[in-house]
Write a protein that binds this DNA or RNA. Structure first.
Lengths: 246, 246
DNA sequence: CGAATATAATAGTAATACTATCATTTACTA
DNA sequence: TAGTAAATGATAGTATTACTATTATATTCG
C-alpha cells in the first residue's frame, strides 16, 4: 500500500503537487523480504541505492554482498542484517518497482473518466521507458527500470521463492498481481466481452519489458527502435484488439 | 540448419513419413556452444538427456556438473570435455529447442497455401504445450519444453553471453532469430500493412512461454487454465489485430 | 554517563566452478 | 593380436561464493 504524508502549504507552493506527492510517497513492501527495514537507516538506504547500480553494472549473477560492502565502505556482515540473501534483495527491489509503477499508473489515470482514454494512459505509463528520476527518494528510478528490464525474470524464476514458500509464494508478488488486476479491469471497462483481460494485461506488463530488452540487445527481433517504442506497439495492439465490430 | 538423411523404402512403410522424418532429423547447433559434439557419443547423449531432467527437477541454479556426473555414473571432468560450463549447456538445450520448434513449424505449415490458415497453424505449433515425445531422439521434448518454460530467460539474461561475445552474441540465437523472422513474414503475408510484425512475432513466442509459466505458478495473472490455453488467447489476439477494416 | 544497539572486522565452513594431472579403459589400425 | 591414440575416470587442488559466528568498536539514547 501507499502511504501519503501531509506537507505544509509552503512546501506545496515551492514544489508542484506531483513532486510533493512523490516526495511523500512511501512504497510499502512485504516485511518478509527484509530482516531490517532498509528505509529505517542511512546504511539501509545506501545498500538499496548502491545495489541497484551494481546489479545493473555487473549483472545479478556477479553481484555479491562482499563487493557491495566494499563499494559503500561497509561490511558484508552488516548487509546480511538487512537482507537474508541477494535473491531477497532483488525481490525487494522488484516489489519497490512494481509499487512505484502501480502508484504512477493509478495517479495518472485517476481523474480520467473515459475508459478508453484511461486505458491508453495506463498503457503509456506501464510501457514507457523511465527517463526522469523524481530525485526525492534515494532510489534512482531510471537505473532501477534498467535493472528490471535486464533481470526481471530472475525475480520470479528463482526456484527458491516457490519452493521455500509453498502456498505463501504469492505474497512476494502481491503488488504485481494487484497491478495486473487493475489493468485487467481497465481492459474490461473498455470491452466487457473481451474474454482474456488478465492474459492481455500480463502480456502488456511483461511484454513491454521484453520489447525494451530486445530493442537493446537483439534489435533484429523487434520493430522497436529510437523512433518506435513499445508504447506505440502495445497501444496499437490493444486498441485493435478491443471493441471489434465482428 | 536441419539435415535429413535418406531412409529405405522398408522403413518408410513400417513407420509413417512424419515419424521417419523425425527419426532422421538432426538439429544443427552452433559449434561454439560445445567443446565436443554431444551427439557424437553415448556419453554425450546421456549428458544432454539427463541434464534436461535434472535442471527441471532442481532448477538451473542448483544444477551442477558434479551432481549430473553422479547421476549418469560418469565424472564431472568428463562432462567438462563436452561443455565449457553449465550456461553453455543451457544455451545448447535452448538452441536445440528452438531448432526443433522451427522444424515443426515449417513442417506443419509448408503445404498450406492460404496465408491465414498458415499463420494460424504456425501459432498453434508455437504456443501449444508439448504433450508427445517423438521417442526417436534421446531428447525428451515434453520435459525440455517444461525446462524452457521455467528457465528460458536465463538463457538470454546470462550477462556472460553478451559480455563475452560482443558482436558475436547473436550467433547463439541464430535459430530463434530465424524462427521469429519466419513468423514475422507469415504475419506480413496476412496483413501487408501491419507495422509491427517482428514485435508481434517475438511477443507470441515469448509471451506464450510466459503464459504457460503463469498458468502453472501464478494462475491469478492469466486467463489460461485447463480449458483455455495460450493458443486460444494468441490466436484470438492475432486475428483481431490483423486485417482491420479501419 | 552508561547501556543498549548498530556496525565493523575477522575468521571459518561448506559448496561451487572450475583446472590439472595421472590412471584406466576402449577403440582403431598396422 | 599387439600397440597406440583417444576417451573416460579418479583424484586433488584453487579461487570464489554464500553464508555463520564471534568479538570489537562506534553510535545513539535515556
Amino acid at each position: 500500500m501507499i502511504v501519503l504524508l501531509l506537507y505544509s502549504r509552503e512546501l506545496k507552493l515551492k514544489y508542484g503537487i506531483m513532486d510533493i506527492l512523490m516526495q511523500s510517497v512511501r512504497i510499502e513492501i512485504n516485511e518478509k523480504l527484509y530482516l531490517k527495514d532498509p528505509e529505517s537507516s542511512s546504511l539501509g538506504k545506501k545498500i538499496v541505492e548502491e545495489s541497484i547500480h551494481m546489479i545493473v553494472e555487473l549483472g545479478f549473477d556477479h553481484f555479491t554482498f562482499k563487493k557491495l560492502g566494499a563499494k559503500i565502505n561497509s561490511n558484508e556482515s552488516s548487509i546480511y542484517r538487512y537482507f537474508e540473501n541477494k535473491q531477497k534483495l532483488l525481490l525487494y527491489l522488484a516489489a519497490w518497482y512494481w509499487g512505484w509503477m502501480e502508484y504512477r499508473m493509478v495517479f495518472a489515470t485517476h481523474s480520467i473518466s473515459d475508459s478508453k482514454e484511461k486505458l491508453e494512459k495506463a498503457i503509456e505509463v506501464l510501457t514507457q521507458n523511465v527517463e526522469e528520476d523524481n530525485a526525492f527518494s534515494h532510489i534512482n528510478e531510471i537505473v532501477l527500470n534498467q535493472l528490471i528490464i535486464n533481470e526481471y525474470s530472475n525475480s520470479y524464476l528463482v526456484k527458491e521463492v516457490y519452493k521455500e514458500n509453498k502456498g505463501k509464494k504469492d505474497d512476494y508478488f502481491t503488488i504485481c498481481k494487484r497491478l495486473v488486476a487493475r489493468l485487467s479491469e481497465m481492459i474490461t471497462a473498455v470491452d466487457k466481452k473481451y474474454p482474456y483481460p488478465l492474459s492481455l494485461a500480463s502480456t502488456i506488463v511483461e511484454g513491454s519489458l521484453h520489447q525494451h530488452f530486445l530493442k537493446e540487445h537483439f534489435p533484429t527481433l523487434t520493430n522497436c527502435n529510437d523512433k518506435i517504442n513499445p508504447t506505440d506497439f502495445f497501444t496499437d495492439l490493444i486498441f485493435r484488439t478491443l471493441n471489434q465490430k465482428n
